[in-house]
């Protein structure tokens, strides 16, 4: 019984959690979100560039994209973050002073871009070649056909995979602690770990974990919702004219549409 109590106290000491909570919410949560958000945006933009280059007809665009992807997907995240964050630190010091965040975000973005680039590439490649052909037959150039017709469809198909990548990014953002953070720069993980180290009690780290779950679990549900919408939506996104009052069960719409064949 004693042993059980010890375990409970080690992980779920509410007083220890309460002590860590203010820092966790005021400092850790914003920092984690800033890291994840900026890297997600930059990683997505870079990823799209990589995908388009990777699908280019020009070898001198395809090849660098390939190498970039292989390198940043192949290296452990910790290695990339340390190499960029420490290796470029003198340069960073000159540009934005003693703040490890920009380099941390850069490293996280580079890692994310490699994965996101592959996600986009597979999405774009899955679009029927007839779509680009139809766009070109209307008079669009190849780049405009890609931009207006092919890429929007490709991206839509891989939204679930993209959100999964964002989840990974939120978790990997904890690795910036390698770069040495000031008290105000600590993210969720670092605050939990510091408190755990100071008190010899893991409860603060458990609290940090709960904070991560609070962000990531809803996101996984977003993934599932998108996934479901995409799968059903393909048949049921008939638009307002099809179901004026929105009363129709989505699943029953396709038959409706076909039975209305006027000629």
């Amino acid at each position: 019984m004693d042993a059980l109590n010890t375990v409970w106290d080690t992980f779920f000491d509410l007083d220890a959690m309460r002590a860590a909570l203010p820092d966790m919410l005021r400092v850790g949560l914003p920092n984690t979100l800033v890291l994840a958000l900026f890297s997600a945006v930059i990683g997505t933009v870079l990823g799209m560039v990589l995908a388009v280059c990777g699908l280019s007809q020009h070898r001198w665009l395809r090849w660098p994209a390939r190498v970039w992807t292989d390198v940043f997907r192949g290296l452990p995240a910790a290695v990339t973050i340390l190499l960029i964050g420490v290796g470029l630190a003198p340069l960073g010091l000159e540009i934005w002073g003693p703040n490890p965040y920009p380099l941390g975000i850069l490293a996280l973005s580079l890692i994310a871009s490699a994965y996101i680039g592959e996600i986009f590439r597979s999405g774009i490649q899955s679009v029927d070649p007839g779509q680009l052909e139809a766009a070109r037959a209307l008079g669009f150039s190849r780049p405009w056909g890609m931009r207006l017709v092919v890429i929007p469809q490709g991206v839509r198909r891989v939204l679930p995979a993209l959100v999964n990548q964002f989840i990974a990014l939120i978790k990997e953002s904890s690795l910036v602690y390698f770069l040495g953070l000031l008290a105000s720069q600590r993210d969720l993980f670092r605050i939990g770990q510091d408190a755990a180290a100071n008190t010899g009690n893991q409860s603060a780290l458990v609290l940090a974990g709960l904070c991560y779950l609070l962000i990531t679990v809803p996101l996984t549900h977003v993934v599932n919702a998108i996934d479901r919408r995409l799968r059903e939506g393909r048949r049921a996104d008939g638009g307002p004219s099809e179901t004026p009052e929105g009363t129709t069960d989505p699943a029953s719409r396709p038959e409706l549409a076909i039975s209305q064949e006027p000629r």
Binding site: R234, R235, A236, D237, G238, G239, P240, S241, E242, R253, P254, A257, I258, E261, R263
Partner: peptide, 13 residues
């Protein structure tokens, strides 16, 4: 009358 519908909801014809 089908202007606001998506192609997936139309018959092949």
């Amino acid at each position: 009358h089908k202007a606001d519908v998506r192609p997936g909801n139309l018959s092949g014809g």
